[in-house]
Deep mutational scan, measured.
Amino acid sequence: SQTQRTQDENEARRIAEEWKRRGYDVEVRNRNGHWEVTWD
Rank of each mutant, 00 (worst) to 15 (best):
A12I: 03
V26R: 01
W39C: 02
I15S: 02
E11A: 07
V37A: 02
E18D: 09
R13W: 13
T38E: 06
W35K: 00
D25R: 14
Y24E: 02
A16S: 05
R21T: 09
R22M: 10
W39Y: 08
E11F: 06
V37S: 00
K20L: 12
R5S: 09
I15Q: 03
N32M: 07
N32S: 07
N10E: 14
H34W: 15
A16Q: 05
T6L: 11
G33F: 03
T3K: 08
D25H: 15
G23S: 02
T38I: 13
S1D: 08
A12K: 01
N10P: 07
E11Q: 07
E9F: 09
H34Q: 13
R14S: 08
Q4W: 15
N10I: 10
E9N: 02
W35F: 05
E18H: 12
R5V: 14
Q7M: 11
A12Y: 02
T3H: 08
N32A: 09
G23P: 00
K20Q: 10
D40W: 15
R22E: 05
Q2T: 12
A12P: 00
G33I: 02
E9I: 07
Q7V: 11
Q2N: 13
W19E: 01
W39I: 14
R21G: 09
N32Y: 08
N32W: 06
T6R: 04
R14T: 08
H34N: 09
R13G: 03
R5C: 13
E36V: 10
W19P: 00
R29V: 14
E27W: 10
Y24W: 08
Q2L: 10
R14G: 04
E27M: 11
T3I: 12
Y24M: 05
N30E: 14
D40K: 15
Q4E: 09
R29F: 12
R13E: 05
N10V: 11
E17P: 00
Q7T: 12
E18N: 07
N32L: 07
V37R: 01
E36Y: 13
R21S: 12
V28N: 00
R5A: 09
R21D: 07
R31S: 10
I15Y: 04
E11L: 08
Y24N: 02
E36M: 06
E18R: 08
N30M: 14
R29N: 10
R21N: 11
S1T: 12
R5T: 12
W39T: 06
R29I: 14
E17I: 06
D8S: 11
T38R: 10
E9S: 04
Q7S: 12
W35D: 00
A16M: 06
W39P: 03
T6E: 05
D25G: 07
G23V: 00
D40Q: 15
V37G: 00
E18L: 11
V28F: 04
E18M: 13
D40P: 08
N32D: 13
N10D: 13
N30A: 09
D8M: 05
E17K: 06
E9G: 04
R22A: 08
N30S: 09
R5Y: 14
R29A: 10
N10M: 13
E11M: 08
R31M: 14
E11W: 07
S1Q: 12
R5G: 06
R13S: 04
E9R: 04
R22S: 04
W19S: 01
T6K: 03
S1L: 13
V37W: 02
W19M: 14
T6G: 05
S1Y: 13
E36R: 02
A12N: 00
T3Y: 10
W39S: 04
Y24H: 05
I15W: 14
T38S: 11
Y24K: 03
Q4V: 15
T3F: 12
T38F: 11
Y24L: 04
S1V: 12
R21I: 08
E27A: 11
E9A: 07
E17F: 08
T6D: 03
N32H: 08
D25Y: 14
W19I: 05
E11C: 11
Q4A: 13
T38G: 03
D40E: 13
R21V: 08
R13K: 09
G23M: 02
E27H: 13
R31F: 13
Q7I: 10
V28L: 07
I15A: 03
V28Q: 02
A16Y: 08
T6Q: 04
G33A: 03
R5Q: 10
Y24D: 01
W39M: 08
R22Y: 05
D8K: 04
E27Q: 14
E9T: 02
G23F: 02
R29S: 10
S1P: 14
G33L: 03
E36L: 08
T38N: 06
I15H: 02
E36S: 05
R31Q: 10
G23K: 01
E9L: 08
R5F: 13
D25T: 14
Q4G: 05
A12G: 02
A16R: 03
Q2Y: 12
A12E: 01
W35Y: 05
T38L: 09
N32T: 04
E18Q: 09
V37P: 00
Y24R: 04
R22K: 11
V37H: 00
W35L: 01
H34A: 12
G33V: 02
Q2K: 12
D8T: 12
R5H: 10
R22T: 02
V26A: 08
E9Y: 12
R22P: 00
D40C: 15
N32E: 09
E17T: 06
V28R: 00
Q4H: 15
A16P: 00
T6M: 09
V28Y: 04
I15L: 11
N30L: 14
W39Q: 03
K20M: 11
N30Q: 14
W35S: 00
W19L: 15
E18Y: 15
N32V: 04
Y24S: 02
D8Q: 05
E36T: 08
Q7W: 11
Q7R: 12
S1F: 14
N10T: 11
I15G: 00
R21A: 13
T6V: 14
E18P: 00
R22H: 06
W39R: 11
E17R: 07
N30H: 14
V37Q: 00
E18A: 08
Q2S: 10
N32F: 09
G33Q: 03
R21E: 08
V26I: 04
T38K: 09
R13M: 10
T6Y: 15
D40G: 15
W19K: 06
R22V: 04
W39E: 01
G33N: 06
V26D: 00
S1R: 13
D8R: 04
E36I: 11
R21K: 13
E11P: 00
E27N: 09
D25K: 14
K20A: 11
N10F: 12
Q7G: 09
E18C: 15
E11V: 07
N30R: 12
E17V: 05
D40F: 15
I15E: 02
G23Y: 02
G23N: 02
G33S: 06
Q7A: 13
A12W: 03
Q7H: 12
W35E: 00
E11R: 05
D8W: 06
D8H: 07
V28E: 00
V28K: 01
E17D: 11
A16N: 01
Y24V: 04
I15T: 04
Q2D: 06
I15M: 08
K20G: 06
D40R: 15
Q4L: 15
V37L: 05
R13T: 05
D25S: 13
E11S: 07
K20V: 09
Q4N: 06
V26M: 02
R31A: 10
E36G: 02
D25L: 13
T6I: 10
E27C: 14
N30D: 08
E36P: 00
G33M: 03
V26S: 04
R13A: 05
E18V: 09
R29H: 13
V26G: 01
N30I: 13
N10S: 13
Q4M: 15
D25M: 13
D8E: 06
Q4P: 04
D25F: 13
E18W: 15
E17C: 12
S1A: 13
H34D: 07
R14E: 07
W39F: 08
Q2W: 14
R13I: 09
K20R: 14
T38D: 04
T3A: 08
R22F: 06
R21M: 10
T38Y: 12
N10Q: 13
D40M: 15
V37F: 02
E27F: 10
G23L: 02
E36K: 02
Q2P: 07
A16H: 02
E36A: 03
